[in-house]
Design a protein around this nucleic acid. Structure first.
Lengths: 245, 245
DNA sequence: CGCCCTCTTGATCTCCTTCAATGACAGTGG
DNA sequence: CCACTGTCATTGAAGGAGATCAAGAGGGCG
């Protein structure tokens, strides 16, 4: 599908030519954000959502007490900041982990697109539900499983998402996240992330060289993961068909 | 608003008369579910969402290893099971905590409503984003705060949600959840839930008699909570106005 | 009356945190 | 070219929040 890096709606349903075209035209001119650059800060007024055209970014919530919890690791093709579209001020801080190319979509333009192509609203709804499911799984993993299990789950999740965009070769992929960041994703300290990864490494389950990580025995890893991956339904019954809406 | 117990869309935006009417007509005839009854099980085929007309219910994910994590405590007026609408088989198990009145909305009917009233799709999107934010906050609380802080946050969250539907009187409300259930919500054991509540009680922050709980000093509790409540924007700019869509 | 569910409390254990020190490496300025 | 500095990974030792195991008490309901 030609519109790939802009959104991944085409993974979830068939799009008409007009809809695909509207999606492509939705974003502002692209912006380059350097490594560690802040894309949008918590409490900033919300007037756009962002398409991550290329790169890795994190979405984090900062607690009043000062800690930060990363609630989403974004990769190429993700939509960012959409939870904040129901708020006046942003819920999360978006930070570029690698250099990123992004495009903003002003909310007023989103409104025009929804009016002209209401089915894209339903597709957006679908994407949001997928994100919500991902969060439910994270809650389940955090509430009920060990550091080791959560780490394995995260690695498999990244593996599966990266595989979809062609960024995995035989179980190997780039993981540009420091152990500090991984800790803030998993709700662990960087020290314990290190111990956990070293252990997995010693067992031959993973291997690392620099930012490169290799999942050694994916089947065995999947048995360790506290939750299996979810399979999203293509073109669900409640979704109006192309042209029906 | 007359359609109150059916959905709470009117909290988020102005509805036209036709939209409100469509919402009211959406559900099947109501069903009574007895205490501890299962409304829908994980892995069941998904062909409807459910409106909780009255009562308390939990949405839980069961891990392959056998534990259960409750990902949402539903109260009167909530929509249930919508995350599963993007899946073939349900993600979560819905169980009635108290006796519940519910109404199913078959997905095919939802489809008809979305086609006839596309703006209701946008309102649904809004409600789902609110749920997603709630999950983000839960992840942040689980990752970065103590049992005590999480407990306080949960009580305040329930307090605020119940207050909106008029089920709170001067900080007092019914809490029909056992400590076992609270543990499965918070990612703690029932034993530790007990110790934590007893401590809060001894400090005069809460008081309990049977299922009734009273939040003693709400201001002090809010200072203990790791996250403040979120204020959802009414009629956001991206939401097409009544009649515009 | 007796059973089961829930709450409560104590004792012990353990996973993860905290604190601290060292090493590897990249970037930077002289 | 090399010292200098900051970031990140690694490992050890000690401490603590919460889990686990166990037992008793109260209360609703058959």
């Amino acid at each position: 599908m030609p519109n790939y890096p802009l959104t991944r709606f085409h993974e979830q349903a068939t799009l008409t030519e007009a809809e695909a075209h509207a999606l492509r035209g939705m974003g502002d001119p692209e912006i380059l954000v350097r490594r560690n650059g802040t894309i949008r800060r918590e409490r900033d007024p919300v007037d756009a959502i962002y398409l991550l055209l290329e790169g890795w970014a994190t979405a984090a919530i900062r607690l009043p007490a000062g800690q930060r919890q990363i609630v989403k690791v974004h990769i190429t093709g993700d939509m960012m900041s959409t939870p904040s579209m129901v708020l006046d001020t942003a819920a999360d801080t978006l930070v570029a982990v690698t250099e990123c190319r992004i495009a903003a979509v002003p909310l007023v333009r989103l409104r025009d697109v929804l009016i002209a192509y209401p089915r894209l609203g339903s597709l957006l709804l679908m994407g949001v539900q997928v994100e919500r499911l991902a969060l439910m799984d994270i809650v389940a993993a955090m509430g009920k499983s060990s550091a080791r299990e959560r780490m394995v789950r995260l690695l498999l999740d990244l593996h599966d998402r990266l595989a979809k965009i062609g960024a995995v070769e035989e179980g190997r992929f780039d993981l540009p996240l420091t152990q500090e960041v991984l800790g803030d994703v998993l709700g662990l300290t960087a020290v314990h992330v290190n111990r956990t990864m070293r252990l997995l490494e010693r067992e031959g389950l993973i291997a690392r060289h620099g930012q490169r990580i290799a999942l050694g025995d994916i089947d065995r890893l999947r048995k360790i993961s506290p939750l299996p991956p979810r399979r999203v339904r293509f073109d669900p019954v409640w979704l109006p068909g192309p042209g029906e809406m």
